Amino acid sequence: MKRPLGVISFLLAAAFALLAAFVHSLPADEFVISGFQATLIVAKLLSTLAIVFLAYGLYLFTTRLINTQFVDRRRQHDIKNVVQLVFIVFALVSAFAIITEQWVGLLVSLGVVGFAITFALQQPLFSFIGWFYIMVKRPYQVGDRVAIEGSKGDVVAVDFFVTTLWEINGELVSSNQPSGRIITLPNSVVLSSHVFNYSWEGFPHIWNELSVQVAFETDLDFAESLLIDVADDYLGDEMAASIANYRRQLAETPVELEVRDRPTVNIRQEESWVDLRLRYLTHPRQGQRVRNELYKRILTAFNEHPERIKFPLGRNR
């Protein structure tokens, strides 16, 4: 659909340009209405339409080229936004210049008007600056799972003024599941708020914990070893590959951190039981699915050794 639309835009731009040239060639003195030269006004209007359709056709052609050159949809989205801004500015400046016939004066006027707009439209301006910051610093991009100012979701669009999220959790669901709602945030929030990115491009994984309570009579060394074996059988190779990537990321920073490439278990004593916390690495969008599968496997493995692994008898946990 976009290819015919782009061709039509170029044809309309050429047609309006020819009409503008024809009207401009007509004797100006013969077409005067209320003191205004009608041919000049019509010629400017046709020239403006030619510029608008030309810019739109070039934009469609450029976006089609972007789609063929960049496979990554995140890159496509960001580059299209920048290209769209360039062509909008080009069309506006060219149209106003044609109407006023004063390029230098127009640029000066735009500077004065821009100074006034800075005070009148502070929030939209801050959001536009926020968009520029997002494009340069990359705190998040399309496809990332983020949390910003109490809102959590997957980024589906980053426009000039707003960021759109598909909400997860919220008031309707839990366990990091989509709620079906859309959240719209002004881009200006990145300039004054914390941004938590759970799946940034350099390391799209997070650590997760699964807690299992056992009785004091449990053979803790055996339970810990069994937990690690179950998790390692399910996640080990994938987790080791991700940790290798994480270590490469750490090597580029001054941070010195020991990171194990296999699941680990932390033991914590509670009032009436022992809490075994399995720590492992997973993708943020697969966290609940992985947790459910691990829990099923762990309970199955624990129930096969009732003589060595005991569960608390109380129901007050």
Rank of each mutant, 00 (worst) to 15 (best):
R268E: 13
F61C: 07
L220S: 05
M135Q: 13
G111D: 02
S9L: 05
A38K: 07
A21Y: 01
Q213W: 09
T218V: 08
I88V: 15
V158E: 01
V104Q: 15
V93C: 07
S34F: 12
E271I: 09
E238S: 15
I8A: 10
A15N: 08
T48R: 10
R297H: 02
L250P: 05
S127E: 03
K2L: 10
I66M: 01
S272R: 13
G180M: 03
L185M: 13
A240L: 02
Q102S: 06
R315Q: 06
R262L: 07
L92W: 04
R315I: 02
P124D: 02
Q249D: 01
P306S: 00
R247F: 00
S225I: 00
R297E: 06
S175M: 11
L110P: 06
Q213C: 13
Q286E: 15
I41L: 10
D72T: 12
V86H: 04
F161H: 15
H283M: 13
G202H: 08
V162N: 13
R315D: 06
F61T: 14
A43W: 03
E256P: 00
E149G: 10
W207V: 11
I183Y: 03
S151I: 06
T68V: 12
S272C: 05
V230Q: 07
S272P: 00
E293S: 08
N266H: 08
G35P: 00
S9R: 02
